[in-house]
Nucleic acid binder design. Sequence first.
DNA 1: CTTATTGCAAAAGATTTGCACTCCA
DNA 2: TGGAGTGCAAATCTTTTGCAATAAG
Lengths: 147, 147
Amino acid sequence: MSCTAVVERRLRAAGLRVTVQRLAVGEALLHAADHRTAEEVQARLQAESAQPVSLATVYRTLHTLVEHRVVGHLDRGRGSAVYEWLDEQHPHHHALCVDCGAEVEIAPRLLERLERAVKAESRFTPFLDHLAIIGRCAACEAAARSQ
Amino acid sequence: MSCTAVVERRLRAAGLRVTVQRLAVGEALLHAADHRTAEEVQARLQAESAQPVSLATVYRTLHTLVEHRVVGHLDRGRGSAVYEWLDEQHPHHHALCVDCGAEVEIAPRLLERLERAVKAESRFTPFLDHLAIIGRCAACEAAARSQ
DNA sequence: CTTATTGCAAAAGATTTGCACTCCA
DNA sequence: TGGAGTGCAAATCTTTTGCAATAAG
């Protein structure tokens, strides 16, 4: 199945209208191995000139896709937020190194345990699929300690 | 010990210069039971007219206090970030309900377990004291489910 | 006395919005 | 065809910054 078809299928499954802009934004994220900011998504579409999309539409589209859980949203607290395609077959979380920007994958299992514990003890249902974990990767942590 | 004295002690302990502005900002957070945005902190100082502080200084002060772990910082991803006084005697985390805005206290123990697990499995050191947990409180979750 | 801190106003950066136009269902 | 989606430019909102004046240690 082509990438366009994958995106289109997710859009329809979510009950969303299919537009060239939405397909383009979706594909830009689907192709990206890592996170992308809204500007990066637009820049990519500009560069490939396949389908230029206005920044306003990129934001509106991302917002819509996040609402429908097609795309994940990570607010780094500094600079722009980043987005990533959510692969239903391979759920996972990311941790971001504040020093070098490296991304580390976190097994969902670890957070599920936290989710259960919080639910049981605090009667609160956390949305951990939007969780922003920041910290330091092994290398930067070692460097920071040796100082 | 007066509130001013509490704040002053923390400032000195952190090796920071003690200024009226820093004392004022610190006290505004110390008195607040919950989180405050930078604007709310300034508004409070304006209203009490005890010590008006420019918004720029409020931001700079909060930034400094967060760096020195005197104040906690929570980025809600939407709108302004919020800050809270960190009581050394009673460490805890907060979870924010997306529907009603309620805050639920999370025992540090739960996150410590996550921290150890992430460290062990992913060779990544998360800064969990800055963690923003969002989700739904028990009441709102029940309401959402019954729909 | 020396350097950090402050206030002001302007800048910066990210995201949102009004409105007229276009396109999907 | 009707309502959802889009582009453009301007607006918004939060946070940061340059610079001269002030205050802490």
